[in-house]
Design a protein around this nucleic acid. Structure first.
Lengths: 352, 352
DNA sequence: CTGAAAGCGCTTACAG
DNA sequence: CTGAAAGCGCTTACAG
């Protein structure tokens, strides 16, 4: 017995109150639903006039294909996941804005998935998230992006992903590289150009690749100009305000103070401010401070903080755009890349 | 002609490499797929032993229903949208964390949708987002949540939503009220208890309901103790750092300075800090400052800022939880509600 | 309490 | 370049 057909509607428009479906478009334009499907999916196997006729009708009735129906048939959703364990709110929000810039009007949506990369089951949590939602692709944000086991798991289950990191650590087509090293080098060259020679460095935790890159970039740029940073002038902290305070206390307590401090992020620079203000050390007259991130904090502090700006929104946009471009698209010869640059404000001047 | 059936698999387990489906569960547990469906949807119309047998099998094979297939059949997705136009990163991120707290292991996911409530087509943008994705529900975050036209549109297209706002402005079952008025009143009482009588107020823009509530709460609490704030002691600013700077310059330039300033948020308090530090006015010795939000900025400033804390994460959790609880659940008699409270730090002391 | 049939709105595999 | 049939993995409507 053949499947029962709904009675053919004589109306030229789909019943109001109900969104148009592929069947409405097919019936109203006099082609098969398969042809409509080809047009939805930009198949070249459609005659130009057929395509234009159908597309005009789609626009007229405001037809948009149902992502769940498409997803069910494709066995893949139209969702992009953003996986992150970074605690810096502005960084996360900027990354989201960037991703949404790329997804706007694409039919894809952004699903957020914060996680804790130190908790043991977190990779399984991401796996369930990706598999249950049949995600189209996943953006990996530092520091989660630096976890090779996470990337391996995603490759194994066959989902597309992009990794955002300070250096390349995967196939170019999966990388967005932020070149933190260059930003730190620019900070070093700037402090040297002001005439500083007794410089200190407060680094992020060495478990973060970004911290290593920023440290190396800074130290090497100084070395190239003949300045070797003594061990006592390099303090590893935790990327947090509190850890910046502790590190600054070490650097600023004795008489033998550096004339400039570069910190691995703005949070720790704020810690330096606290210690300096409390001790009556004037910024920038007695101490120049340069941070990294150019977070909102940098301009809220007084004096406003010279800092290395990262184009986080662009980074997010590129990482998402790579995920939704057709597989056969122009292959990225080199990894996508974003470069930081120094923003000079009021916390730095030549040493007195 | 009957539809061709796939050959019955003799294997007791679904083919490996492929996730189990409702058909696998039905076949392996010897019930119909409709019964499995009832169990998935927590229907009471299933015998206890049947339910337990099937649930055990589901756990064993790690079966999770496909959200796209369910969504297609239900004509509604398992996505919760979060709509916001608030520029404060920490606030947004906390709201997201809270929403995800409620959605964890529920099968729902969070889709973010920032927007610009001043741009003309933004309500249509939200409508397309909600209708195309067939969202299960929408969380409205201030200031977007205060737009009655937005809420009306959502009601008209029949989607569930919750509104987060400083006062109730909708049916209780749709409101999460944050009582900003109470927090501001607590700040006023605190400053009075320290002995301040010459107090100034920097408010947010009166187009924001939160700004009105905070202002009224503060002014009324002072009035109840017999302190009337002169007009010149109240300055409307824009909730931004820069606007806080401008307002503080007016308040702190003459000789007739207030001994305490309350600001409608922490951003503007940072503006007060900048002006005071630049002018050599000591906080808290010569000027007490109290902010609102208890953002990360509050503890990064020096001296650390006394501020009214909002439980934004809890707010987000409740707003999301209301959207996914069954329609017939215990009706909320009163709107869900969250109360702010003052966190005392180093920016406030009795006047000298 | 349980099940067989039809359908949600798309795409794939095949045929022409 | 185009189309009819079957299927993606669920639920609804109906029957028992």
């Amino acid at each position: 017995m053949p499947a029962r057909k709904k009675p053919e509607s004589p109306a030229p428009r789909p019943a109001s109150g109900r969104a148009a479906t592929i069947n409405d478009i097919a019936r109203l334009s006099g082609v098969s639903k398969k042809t409509v499907s080809r047009i939805i999916n930009h198949s070249p196997l459609v005659r130009k006039d057929t395509r234009e006729k159908v597309e005009a009708l789609m626009r007229e009735v405001g037809y948009v294909p149902d992502p769940m129906a498409r997803g069910l048939a494709f066995r893949r959703s139209f969702l992009i996941g953003m996986v992150y364990d970074n605690p810096t709110a502005q960084y996360i929000v900027n990354m989201q804005y960037g991703a949404l810039d790329a997804l706007r009007d694409s039919g894809f949506e952004l699903v957020v998935h914060p996680c804790d990369s130190r908790s043991p089951g977190y990779i399984d949590g991401v796996r369930r998230f990706v598999q249950q939602q049949k995600l189209h692709g996943v953006m990996l944000v530092p520091r989660a992006s630096e976890d090779q086991a996470l990337a391996d798991m995603l490759a194994e289950i066959g989902v597309r992903y992009t990794r955002i990191a300070s250096v390349s650590m995967d196939e170019p087509s999966r990388m967005v590289v932020t070149h933190d090293r260059n930003g730190a080098a620019e900070a070093a060259e700037y402090l040297l150009s002001l005439g500083h020679t007794d410089i200190a460095l407060i680094t992020g935790p060495s478990a973060y690749r970004s911290a290593i890159e920023r440290t190396d970039g800074f130290v090497e740029a100084l070395a190239q100009r003949g300045i070797e940073l003594p061990k006592a002038r390099i303090i590893e902290a935790g990327y947090t305000f509190e850890s910046g305070v502790v590190a600054a206390e070490k650097l600023l307590s004795g008489k033998n103070r550096p004339t400039a401090i570069f910190t691995g992020n703005d949070e720790m620079a704020a810690g330096v401010y606290k210690v300096a203000l409390r001790a009556g050390i004037s910024i920038p007259r007695q101490l120049s401070v340069v941070g990294f991130d150019d977070s909102p904090l940098a301009s809220r502090l007084w004096p406003s903080l010279t800092s290395v700006r990262r184009n986080t929104r662009d980074t997010g946009r590129i990482a998402a755009a790579m995920l939704i471009q057709p597989e056969g698209g122009a292959p990225a010869l080199a990894a996508a890349s974003i470069r930081p640059h120094l923003v000079i404000r009021d916390s730095s001047q030549p040493p007195e």
